[in-house]
Amino acid sequence: MSQYKIIFTGPVGAGKTTAIESISDIPPIKTDAVATDMTKARKAATTVAMDYGIMNLAGGEKIHLYGTPGQERFDFMWDILTIGGIGLILLLDNNRADPFQDMKFFLESFSKFIADTSVAIGVTQMDLSNKPTIADYHSQLQGLGFKPAVFAVDARVKNDVSLLVQALLYSLDPGLKDHE
């Protein structure tokens, strides 16, 4: 049986674990550990392996939700994680020093996966820092040759995460109906 999965990625503290928690039907399996490196400045605990959640569909199918570890030293895991993936959700923390640099880094790192599937971008922490704006992200993306959905997202809010995943699915196929 095929393993269907949606990948959540982004820098440390962008809300990947929380986003998975928002739409998972099971309490997500977290692999957080006390941060001891530079990450410590941003959050006390960080994901060192991956997060995992499940969406149960009618008929018994399961969609696996994987969150990549945010730290770059774990990037060797990213290629393995994406095998069989439906698409990519990239979460960016608007409160970080250079969110555009983060965006570029992750889009490049997952470029092959994105080319084969699609990506939707959620910008978190916009209530704390409203600059750059969503329009600024679109301007940057235009220069990079991407035209994905970019939404302001509160990872704790199920509806926000749900809309982001819906945009990813429609990007894959605008003809989708939700009752098939």
Partner: peptide, 16 residues
Amino acid sequence: SKGLLSRILGKLRSSK
């Protein structure tokens, strides 16, 4: 996976 994507969509839309 087309049918599967629709089912994911249905799930997301129904569990607001």
